[in-house]
Design a binder for these strands. Sequence first.
DNA 1: ACCGTGGTTAGCTTTC
DNA 2: GAAAGCTAACCACGGT
Lengths: 104, 104, 104, 104
Amino acid sequence: MSENVAEFPHAEEETQTQNEHQAPKDVGGVGGERLLSFIQRIERLEEEKAALMEDIKEVYAEAKGVGFDVKIIRKVVSLRKQDTDKRREEDELLDLYKAAVGMI
Amino acid sequence: MSENVAEFPHAEEETQTQNEHQAPKDVGGVGGERLLSFIQRIERLEEEKAALMEDIKEVYAEAKGVGFDVKIIRKVVSLRKQDTDKRREEDELLDLYKAAVGMI
Amino acid sequence: MSENVAEFPHAEEETQTQNEHQAPKDVGGVGGERLLSFIQRIERLEEEKAALMEDIKEVYAEAKGVGFDVKIIRKVVSLRKQDTDKRREEDELLDLYKAAVGMI
Amino acid sequence: MSENVAEFPHAEEETQTQNEHQAPKDVGGVGGERLLSFIQRIERLEEEKAALMEDIKEVYAEAKGVGFDVKIIRKVVSLRKQDTDKRREEDELLDLYKAAVGMI
DNA sequence: ACCGTGGTTAGCTTTC
DNA sequence: GAAAGCTAACCACGGT
């Protein structure tokens, strides 16, 4: 059932001949193939990402299992992240200063 | 009702013997250490996740670099994902029907 | 990113004359009043929303009452919604393609 | 495309006599029709809900337009809601006490 | 009666 | 500055 619409982009057509020197926006030539390749790379990465999110959930679950309060752990992680981010920003700012002053 | 005032985490009551005069960072017996371990595992995974998100952005950027329209790619990816999800849900619905009807 | 420490709300600087020794609840001149008005409009709408959610629950309950399986109904509703959304998005994708190709 | 799968339905087994001249889409006796009716009522309500959410967003936008900080307004609304909820819970608790003590 | 799960909503981030 | 997509908190429900 269900007709997967969605792949409009389908490089199948093997429009062999005219695809040299194409401008971008190549819809049915080699472009389609290439586009599909990008899409698949993205999908692969997204799968990995989803798997990691799964793992993270599991760690929380495990922590919960031994009696920790998940909500609090989340908060702690978040706060630590804020610290990190802040430090990183400060470093960036410092670099900016250095650059402004010719130190780099 | 309900007190979600954040009573601090407390792992199982294995708080037996050593909880007076603790070293810093060990609030509830061995709990602190254990908690830290969970937190670090989570942070590690989140780093990996961030890296993947970075990678994904790069793929989009690369696609853009060779002339594709990022917005369109995003849409296509999204629609393909919807297909997948929908199929999965339809299967679930089918299972639901079966269960409702005693076929399982 | 920035300090979300909550500098308190402040409407446009029309805080001209009367802002010393204000009554409570009026922090920035006429701003407080105006702010309150926004807040109340929002709260009113949220109440209506909550009422609707209540109604929806009741319909599910009623359906359950005559023997339907709520879980299945939810799934069906969800799938029908996905259809709608998907169709809409496909149209958007089509527009996107057209635009990309100069047809609009 | 796609024909919403879905109505497999079976309301109570009152499938006896009355299924003459059914409308299309009536798979399991009068059940399908009834189910559809429920579904449509739900969908109608959900539309209204979506409209309200739209309205709320507009109010926020308007507030922003005159210089208020949306994030802060959200926070205020949320805090006020917590107050309300808390008060409601306290009232319920009070009722409980009263009941327990025969005051009602 | 509690826990776990899934779905929903709101808030944040990033994009255009 | 607005709009969208993504993520994380919340809540209600069903299962054990």
